[in-house]
Deep mutational scan, measured.
Amino acid sequence: SEEWVEIALRLLELGREANINGTILNLHKEEIEELIRRLLKRI
């Protein structure tokens, strides 16, 4: 399964939302940290 691709796409999506909203992603901080942890486990 290409889970890391899904994770990377989700991170990009959150990054785009952050640019549009001008936020520092506090809302998504925990989700982002969890996604990155899952991503690093696969490398």
Score class of each variant (00 low, 15 high):
Arg42Glu: 03
Leu12Ala: 03
Ala8Pro: 00
Lys41Val: 09
Ser1His: 13
Lys41Ser: 07
Arg10Asn: 02
Asn26Arg: 03
Glu2Ala: 13
Ile32Tyr: 03
Leu11Ala: 01
Leu40Ile: 06
Val5Glu: 02
Glu13Val: 08
Lys41Phe: 10
Ala18Trp: 09
Arg10Gln: 03
Leu27Lys: 13
Glu3Gly: 12
Asn26Met: 09
Asn21Asp: 10
Ile24Glu: 07
Gly15His: 09
Arg37Phe: 08
Asn19Tyr: 14
Leu25Arg: 06
Lys29Phe: 15
Ser1Gln: 13
Thr23Asn: 11
His28Trp: 15
Ala18Ile: 14
Arg16Met: 06
Ala18Leu: 13
Glu34Trp: 10
Val5Phe: 11
Leu25Tyr: 02
Glu13His: 05
Asn19His: 13
Ser1Lys: 12
Ile24Lys: 04
Glu6Pro: 04
Arg37Trp: 11
Leu39Glu: 00
Asn21Met: 12
Arg42Val: 13
Arg42Leu: 15
Ile20Gln: 05
His28Ala: 09
Lys41Asp: 09
Glu34Gln: 08
Leu12Pro: 00
Glu6Lys: 11
Asn19Gln: 12
Glu17Gln: 10
Glu13Arg: 08
Ala18Asn: 04
Ala18Pro: 04
Leu35Lys: 01
Leu25His: 04
Ser1Thr: 10
Leu25Ile: 10
Leu35Ala: 03
Thr23Met: 08
Leu12Lys: 01
Lys41Ala: 11
Ile32Gly: 00
His28Met: 15
Glu17Val: 10
Leu35Phe: 06
Ile36Arg: 00
Arg38Leu: 10
Arg42Thr: 10
Leu39Thr: 01
Glu30Pro: 03
Ile43Glu: 01
Leu35Arg: 03
Glu3Lys: 08
Leu14Ala: 02
Glu33Ala: 11
Glu3Arg: 13
Ala8Val: 14
Ile32Lys: 00
Ile43Cys: 14
Ile7Leu: 08
Ala18His: 06
Ile43Asp: 01
Glu13Lys: 06
Glu34Val: 08
Glu17Thr: 10
Ile43Lys: 03
Trp4Glu: 01
Leu14Ser: 01
Gly22Asn: 09
Leu9Gln: 04
Leu39Arg: 00
Thr23Val: 10
Gly15Thr: 09
Thr23Ala: 09
Ile32Met: 05
Glu34Thr: 11
Ile43Ala: 05
Glu3Ile: 12
Leu27Phe: 05
Ala8Thr: 07
Glu17Asp: 06
Glu33Val: 14
Ile24Phe: 08
Ile36Leu: 07
Thr23Ser: 12
Glu31Phe: 12
Leu35His: 01
Ile32Asn: 00
Ile32Pro: 00
Lys29Asn: 11
Ile43His: 03
Glu2Trp: 15
Arg37Asp: 03
Glu33Thr: 11
Lys29Glu: 07
Arg37Leu: 07
Arg16Tyr: 09
Leu35Gln: 01
Glu31Leu: 13
Ile43Trp: 13
Lys41Arg: 14
Trp4Leu: 10
Leu40Val: 04
Glu3Gln: 09
Leu39Ile: 11
Leu39Ser: 00
Ile43Val: 03
Leu35Pro: 00
Lys29Asp: 06
Trp4Val: 07
Thr23Gly: 11
His28Asp: 07
Asn21Gly: 08
Asn21Leu: 15
Gly22Ile: 14
Gly22Tyr: 06
Leu14Trp: 07
Ile24Ser: 10
Ala8Arg: 04
Leu14Cys: 15
Glu6Ser: 10
Arg16Trp: 12
Lys29Ile: 14
Val5Tyr: 10
Arg37Gln: 04
Glu31Trp: 14
Leu14Arg: 02
Arg16Glu: 03
Asn19Gly: 08
Lys29His: 11
Leu12Thr: 03
Arg37Ser: 03
Leu25Val: 07
Glu13Thr: 05
Ile7Gln: 02
Glu13Trp: 13
Arg42Met: 11
Glu30Leu: 06
Val5Ala: 06
Glu33Trp: 14
Leu27Trp: 12
Arg38Asp: 02
Asn26Thr: 06
Glu33Pro: 01
Ile7Asn: 01
Leu40Thr: 01
Arg42Pro: 03
Leu40Ser: 02
Ile20Ser: 07
Lys29Arg: 10
Lys29Gln: 11
Arg16Asn: 04
Ile24Asp: 12
Asn26Pro: 08
Leu12Cys: 15
Ala8Met: 13
Leu14Gln: 02
Arg16Leu: 12
Glu30Val: 06
Ile7Cys: 15
Glu3Ala: 12
His28Ser: 14
Glu34Ser: 06
Lys41Met: 13
Leu9Lys: 04
His28Glu: 07
Ala18Thr: 06
Ile32Trp: 09
Arg37His: 05
Leu11Met: 04
Arg38Tyr: 12
Arg10Phe: 14
Glu31Ala: 11
Ile43Gly: 02
Glu30Met: 07
